[in-house]
């Protein structure tokens, strides 16, 4: 706060005086409501669920009471194969969807950074998928991949790639990629937009200089665009990883974790424990494990980002 005080030309704010103290108090008064608000809606539930995760709270067994069990819930989960296989699935979803989103997003951003007629219209159209609620997106893709009358099947058949309609959502391997496709379609526009913003900060002179030196399009992409886009890309990467790791809605609408658990990501597992089985304490422990994983990822990324900026 101290550095924020403007320089005083004629001793209007005597050092350590009444006015300054009043100003600090005023600042606190301004912050306090939002602090209380955040406390009530974030810190209080967080504390409560941490407490919940250390007890055994199972609503279908009221007779058993709610004894303190320490870390037993966590140990139970960490020992179960179901937890690790869903972590694996979540990681696969995260890596593949982000990789595709990054590459596609970069190409779209490069395209929209060029000057051509109708560019501004295209730029606003680009945001359409992003503006759609996730549930709507998921329902739409569920219909597109429908085994009996889906548009995807019709397209492939008209192109002569498949002989008859395929049930894409009923095969474990393809179902996961259908879910990824729905996510990619929705999120690529956001990635493209963020990268486009990054592209516009790169000075044109650099490209002109490269052109004079005889560098081709691909070489300037590799030597100028991508290195200078690094910080933006890292930000996108962090945002997207944190988001993708908690994916739930698309899975809930499209597959309910099926077929044969192929799309049962970690958030879906948590939801099942808590709301299907009423094992609130295990659900809470699972949520904390997700938080932990995401926190570690965020830490690693911020480290990497710092290094990059120094470079």
């Amino acid at each position: 706060m101290h550095s924020k005080v403007p320089p005083t030309p004629s001793g209007m704010y005597p050092r350590g005086g009444l006015l300054r103290r009043r100003e600090t108090a005023f600042a606190w008064a301004l912050i306090l409501p939002s602090f209380v608000f955040i406390g009530v809606i974030i810190f209080y539930p967080m504390g409560l669920s941490l407490r919940l995760s250390l007890f055994q709270v199972d609503l279908t067994r009221r007779g058993a009471g709610t004894p303190f069990v320490g870390l037993a819930n966590y140990i139970d989960i960490l020992k179960s194969g179901y937890f690790w296989s869903s972590v694996g699935r979540t990681a696969y979803f995260t890596v593949v969807s982000i990789a595709i989103e990054m590459v596609l997003g970069l190409f779209i951003a490069l395209l929209l950074n060029e000057k051509f007629r109708g560019r501004s219209i295209l730029r606003s159209l680009l945001l359409l998928p992003w503006a759609l609620p996730i549930t709507v997106d998921a329902i739409m893709w569920k219909w597109i991949f429908n085994a009996n009358y889906g548009a995807f099947n019709a397209l492939l058949q008209q192109l002569g790639l498949i002989e008859k309609y395929q049930p894409w959502l009923t095969r474990p391997w393809s179902a996961m990629h259908c879910v990824i496709a729905a996510d990619v379609w929705k999120v690529t526009p956001l990635v493209a937009l963020l990268l486009l913003a990054g592209l516009q900060t790169i000075p044109r002179e650099l490209y002109e200089a490269a052109e004079v030196d005889g560098a081709g399009w691909f070489r300037s992409l590799w030597k100028i665009t991508i290195p200078l886009l690094g910080p933006t890309m890292t930000v996108v990467l962090v945002l997207r990883t944190l988001d993708a790791f908690r994916v739930f809605d698309i899975v809930y609408v499209m597959t309910q974790g099926g077929p044969a658990n192929a799309t049962k990501v970690i958030s879906f597992l948590t939801y099942q424990e808590a709301f299907k089985f009423l094992h609130f304490s295990r659900g809470a422990a699972l949520s904390y494990l997700i938080t932990l994983i995401v926190a570690v990822l965020a830490l690693l990324y911020t480290r990497a980002m710092k290094r990059q900026i120094e470079y």
């Binding site: 009923t170 095969r171 474990p172 077929p259 044969a260 658990n261």
Partner: peptide, 22 residues
């Protein structure tokens, strides 16, 4: 049974595992 939700989930997962050839 009070644990029917769990029984149902186990059955649905295992039935689907067989139906999808896993």
């Amino acid at each position: 049974v009070p644990w029917y939700s769990q029984l149902s989930l186990i059955l649905s997962e295992e039935l689907q595992a067989a139906l999808t050839k896993a």
